[in-house]
Design a protein around this nucleic acid. Structure first.
Lengths: 203, 203
DNA sequence: GTCTATATCAAGATAGAC
DNA sequence: GTCTATCTTGATATAGAC
């Protein structure tokens, strides 16, 4: 029993290493440009071994998405727990800030919404769907609460707000500003949080 | 002289057809998923003929980008000319609206900012750079004017406003709302213009 | 489960006749 | 310039030994 558990732990650690590599490579190069050979080389195992753990490139990406969604979920829970005094709007801002930080750290996998093989895999991947739904529901509650409090525009459909927040996870403006090199990471994040919630128009 | 001109016209028409196909396929599937075979089949010519016109897949994409930038430029000029009474802010909103309309029409090519071969080609493609610069300069003037008029947040760096506007050309929220099917095209566009300029927070 | 070696195939690009 | 046929490469995936 102990031996089995040990082996399972070793497996888990290895798979964690794989998913971490995938996560980083997905963030760096995107799904199409990332090759399975690269992943194997990055992890330091043979490609065939990799395929024993994850039977396809699409499932590799799915695992990476699950991992980042679990991280997001953990952040949501810690925010709700550790900072109950924060208003729903402040929480939503914190979520966007977290998204941008993860992106800046090169840990936000970006998947093409157009790739159909990948889409099919994701739509059939229960852990992914579960995580995505949980995150969406939590954010949805915060959004509705923020609207009720008069902090988020109540005339916007909540789902539009939700999608707009999700889109911050792959906002190309972040990379452009970062590449420009004339702002610190903190300034870039502040600018994007401001434009997301405050808009471009003067108040 | 007349004969040469005629031949050149035929060539131009053919290349226009090619670029139109590329434009549509890029909008539909993205750069990586679009294959040169598809383009050739769509245009109705052999692949080798295609390569006589455009020596690489990257140059095909560059031509598509130039075409859409030229369309954008024409829109900017017609807006400035036909509607001199519009405020700079209203013009900027019209530009975003135009971007979203082109996207909804399936005519907005979307290129991955990560692909390095493509990036290299674009950065060496003078017509592309020229068009991009002209568009950027025109928009930049409108942005500064809108800030001076107190309509656009004057505390935002103009370039941040510019990049945020450019990003509307590949906003994933558009596709998600469109796919949801519960809004008309006009409603989707209105929602995105509102969130872009007004932000998510209540006013 | 891990490895080396290989099958398989899709896609960018080209040769050469007309 | 257009075509058919082919080359070449790179990448997903697998076979089979240990």
């Amino acid at each position: 029993m102990a031996k089995v558990s040990f082996r399972e732990q070793v497996l888990r650690v290895r798979e964690d290493a794989i998913v971490s590599s995938v996560n980083r490579l997905l963030a760096e190069k995107g799904f199409e440009a990332m090759t399975v050979d690269e992943v194997a080389a990055d992890v330091g195992i043979a490609k065939a071994s990799l395929y024993k753990h994850f039977p396809s490139k699409e499932l590799l990406a799915a695992a990476a998405m699950v991992k980042v969604l679990e991280r997001a979920l953990a952040f949501l829970e810690s925010t709700a727990k550790a900072s109950p005094e924060l208003s729903p709007l402040e929480r939503l801002k914190a979520v966007v800030r977290w998204c941008l930080e993860v992106q800046l750290a090169g840990e936000m996998p970006s998947l093409p919404s157009q790739n159909s093989a990948l889409r099919t895999t994701l739509m059939g991947h229960t852990p992914y769907l579960d995580c995505l739904m949980t995150v969406s529901e939590t954010l949805g509650e915060w959004i509705v609460a923020a609207q009720a409090a008069g902090d988020v525009d109540p005339t916007l459909p909540p789902e539009v707000v939700l999608y707009t927040l999700f889109a911050r996870a792959c906002d190309p403006v972040l990379g452009v500003l970062k590449a420009g090199g004339q702002y610190t990471d903190e300034q870039v994040i502040d600018l994007l949080v401001r434009t997301s919630f405050g808009g471009l128009a003067a108040r």
